[in-house]
Computed example of a mutant assay.
Amino acid sequence: MTHTIRTHRPARTTVGALAAAALLTLTACNAGGDDDSKASDDSSASADPSASSSADAAAEPDLDGIPDVVAEVNGEEVTKDEFVPIYEVAFQQATSQAQMGGQAPDEDALKKQTVDELVDTELLSQEADSRGIEVSDDDVDAELETLAKQNQMGSAEELLKAVEKQGMSEDQARSQVETQVMVEQLAADEDGSIDPTEKELRALYAQAKKQQAQSGQKGQKIPPFAQVHDQLEEQARSEQVGKVAESLLKDLRKDADITINL
Rank of each mutant, 00 (worst) to 15 (best):
D191R: 07
Q235K: 11
G101H: 15
A245D: 02
G16R: 09
A31Y: 12
A59E: 10
N261I: 02
Q172A: 14
Q150F: 03
T197D: 02
A213L: 10
P196W: 04
L123G: 03
P224D: 14
S136M: 02
V241A: 00
Q217M: 12
K218A: 11
V69N: 03
V70M: 02
A245R: 00
D56R: 06
E233N: 07
K210V: 09
L118K: 05
E76A: 15
I222M: 01
L124A: 09
K161N: 07
E122T: 10
A156Y: 07
D36T: 11
N74K: 09
S37M: 14
A19C: 07
S238I: 12
A245V: 00
A156G: 10
A187S: 15
A94V: 01
R131T: 04
K218P: 00
G32D: 13
M100C: 12
L204P: 01
P105V: 08
D64E: 13
S130E: 14
P196D: 14
F83G: 06
I66H: 10
A21P: 01
L186Q: 07
V183W: 14
K199W: 03
A203I: 02
Q126L: 03
V84M: 10
Q172W: 09
S169F: 03
T7R: 05
D189R: 09
L249K: 03
D255H: 06
D36R: 12
T95H: 15
V119F: 00
A208Q: 04
D56G: 10
A236P: 03
S130I: 03
S46K: 11
S136I: 00
M153H: 12
V119R: 00
Q207A: 05
H3E: 11
V89D: 11
D141A: 13
V183D: 07
S136C: 04
G154E: 06
L186R: 05
A11N: 08
L252I: 01
A47R: 15
F83P: 01
A203K: 07
P196E: 12
T79P: 12
V70R: 02
G192Y: 05
K250L: 07
Q93D: 15
Q211M: 05
G132S: 03
A19G: 13
E145A: 07
